[in-house]
Every structure is written in structure tokens, then in C-alpha cells.
Design a protein around this nucleic acid. Structure first.
Lengths: 208, 208
DNA sequence: GTCTATATCCAGATAGAC
DNA sequence: GTCTATCTGGATATAGAC
């Protein structure tokens, strides 16, 4: 990996742990294994590194959302084709998606960074809301809308269904970020939530 | 108000906007209307001010939780006495509680501060989880447990019910913190959520 | 591209007069 | 308790040799 990329990687790691202001350029340079002044050959300054994390990692975040499609896409297809999905399948999909969000170094660090910098600027507020709320909500809103049309789940406001489904998942994700040692317990609660949601809203398949 | 208290007030205001590191002692002193060195007659240093915000404001946070009791306490009594509460009453209680959490300067600023400093130390992680997740969850878990026992709502895991009720409220509160201009729209969604939850879980009163 | 040396600045904190 | 003056350390950033 080139030095320029290594700087981004180490800067993200440090920023996500301590916050932008608490990390010095020298700390980043140390982590990369160079001296601080060398770093200015790659970036104009500290602020430039911070901005580059967001600009240059849009691609990697795209890979993440693609991987969501991998996880979620086929349930989508299940639905389109069969009009049904089991509680087991749903629970496993959410579990693997959250596990990925927690354990992928890049995704996890970026989420923590945006969380602690979310009030720094209108841009970062919007980024947080877009990435970690609206995008996820809209995906499930659309999904639930089609499931309602297909009479797979009860007819309720899809936006509110998505909120009731997603918000607990996001809250539990935050708990894992704060207390990684409780991950197992939290994942159990997560599974309970998904199964409860499924039980509440799925219509039973028509009796034979 | 004494200078010592004014320092805390202005420091909280600034910290909640920019974060601990981005606020200088001089900025705090300016806001109070004194020079920076004078501030050291009241506190040992910047860190001491930060800590004092949490220590000395535990009392005020107690007043806030008391006011929750004012808002929520009588639904509790409604329940104990009548075993029922209307959707209108429930929606209005949540609305007023959230409005208070948003508009009380102290409560609002403290929440934003803890949000952006939540990864700074294990203590702050624990404080966030305790104040903004566990405490609220436990309140409603207990409430729902009694409502189930009284056959007012469906028999489901009270912990999961509390999660499904609270998480959307907390998520919407975060949205208001990031985008205060969207408060009205968000409050409408909030009301929709509470009414959906009520409709899902409340058993109809027995027919005459 | 990396280094050493250094300029520049600013923040936290202290000394001591009033 | 507040001020002015100042110390001290640390951080961003630049200059210029290699």
C-alpha cells in the first residue's frame, strides 16, 4: 500500500479513537512510520487528511453498501420470487450484516468518527443522517412497501415499519461500539428483536 | 448566579457545540466576561471544569428525571388504577417529554456533549449507555411488564417491547439534534410511531 | 520523498500586583 | 477575585539538505 493510503488508514484509526482535535499530525506520522514533515508531501495539512478520509473513502463505503446488497439483495429476490422469507433467514441476514459492520475495520472506524464529529459542521450532520439513518430507512421502507403490496406483511405505514425495524438495530450497534465486550449479549437481543418484528408483522402463509 | 456556576454554564454551552478539545479556556472566560487566568481561582484547570460539569450537574439531571416522572408518572398511575391509557394520552406524554428534552438548554446541551465525547473514556461510554439507553429502557420494561401482567397489552418479552418503543424515539431525538429545523416533521413521525406501537400491542378493552 | 532544524503560533497554566 | 505579564509545552507547518 502506498504511503498516501497508509496515512489515511492510520489517521482514520486514530481520529475514530480520539477525535480530530486530540490527534496530532506527529501521532499520525509515527503510526505510519515516517516523520511529521514528510507527511506534508502527501497532504496539504491535517484538515486535508480529514477531508480526504471522506472523499477518498467514498469508494470503499460504496463497497460496503454493495456488500449490504449481497446480504440483503437476495432476500429482496426471495420476496420478489416467492413472496416470503422465514424468520430464521431474516435473523441470520441481520446478524451477518451487523457482524460485518462491527468487525470491518474501515466501516466500524468510519462510523465512530462520524458519530463523534457529527456536530462539527452541517455537512457532517447531513452525512451522519444520510448514511446511518435515511439510507437504511429508505431501503427497508421500499422493501416493506413491496411486501405489503404482495400481502406478505400487514398493511401499515412503511416508513413507520422501517423505523420500528431499524432503530433498535442501530441502537444496539451503538451499544456494541461503546461496549464491544457485550457483543454476544447484544447480538442475542438483536435476534430477539428481529424475530419479534417478524412475528408481529408477517402474515401467516395461507393454510393448505 | 455566581461566577463559578456561570463558568460551568458557558463551558457546557461551548463544549456541546464544538467538543472539549476545540474549546479554549480563553473562549470560556470570554463568554463568562472575565480573563482566562481568573478562571483558575475557581477551577484547577480545563479538565476540572469538564469533570465539574458532570459532577455538579448530577443534581440538575436528577431534576430532569424527576420531570420525566411528572410526565410519565401519572400514566403509571393511570395504569395502576384503570389498567388503561388512550393513544391520545400516550402520544401527548411522549411529545411533551421530547419537547422538553429538546428545548431545555441544559438537558439538550448535556446530551450533545456526551454524544460527541462518548468514546473518550470508558466512564463516558458507560454514562451514555446508562443515561440515554439503559435507564429509559428499564423504565419502560418495568411499565410494560406490569401492563402485560394486567392484560393491558399483548404478552411479549418486555425488554424487546421497550426496545421497539424507545429506540425509534431516541433515533428521532438524534435527528432533531442534528437538524433542529426539521423538528416539526420529526415530531409528526414520532406521533405516528407511538400510535402504531399502541395499536399493535394494546388489547382492545373488553366489549360491553 | 524523507529527513533535521526551525519558524510560528497558540493553548494551558502560573506569578504576583491590585 | 480579577487583572497584566509571562512561562512553558506542544502543535501545525515550512525551509532546505540529502
Amino acid at each position: 500500500m502506498g504511503t498516501k493510503q497508509r496515512i489515511l488508514r492510520e489517521a482514520l484509526r486514530l481520529f475514530s479513537q480520539k477525535g480530530y482535535d486530540a490527534v496530532s499530525v506527529e501521532q499520525i506520522a509515527d503510526a505510519v512510520g515516517i516523520k511529521a514533515p514528510s507527511l506534508y508531501k502527501h497532504y496539504k495539512g491535517k484538515r486535508d487528511i480529514f477531508d480526504a478520509i471522506f472523499e477518498e473513502t467514498a469508494k470503499r463505503y460504496g463497497e460496503f453498501t454493495d456488500s449490504i446488497s449481497v446480504h440483503m439483495g437476495d432476500s429482496d429476490q426471495d420476496l420478489a420470487v416467492f413472496g416470503a422469507i422465514t424468520a430464521d433467514t431474516l435473523a441470520e441476514k441481520v446478524r451477518s450484516l451487523i457482524a460485518y459492520s462491527l468487525h470491518d475495520e474501515f466501516v466500524s472506524q468510519l462510523r465512530r468518527l462520524v458519530t463523534i464529529e457529527q456536530f462539527r459542521s452541517p455537512e457532517l450532520s447531513a452525512l451522519y443522517s444520510q448514511r446511518y439513518v435515511a439510507q437504511i430507512q429508505q431501503y427497508h421502507e421500499g422493501l416493506f412497501r413491496r411486501m405489503i403490496a404482495a400481502s406478505v406483511i400487514r398493511r401499515e405505514d412503511p416508513e413507520l415499519l422501517a423505523l420500528m425495524y431499524d432503530a433498535p438495530i442501530l441502537l444496539l450497534l451503538g451499544e456494541c461500539d461503546r461496549h464491544p465486550e457485550k457483543e454476544q449479549e447484544i447480538m442475542d437481543t438483536l435476534e430477539g428483536h428481529v424475530r419479534l418484528f417478524y412475528r408481529l408483522f408477517s402474515k401467516q402463509p395461507p393454510e393448505e
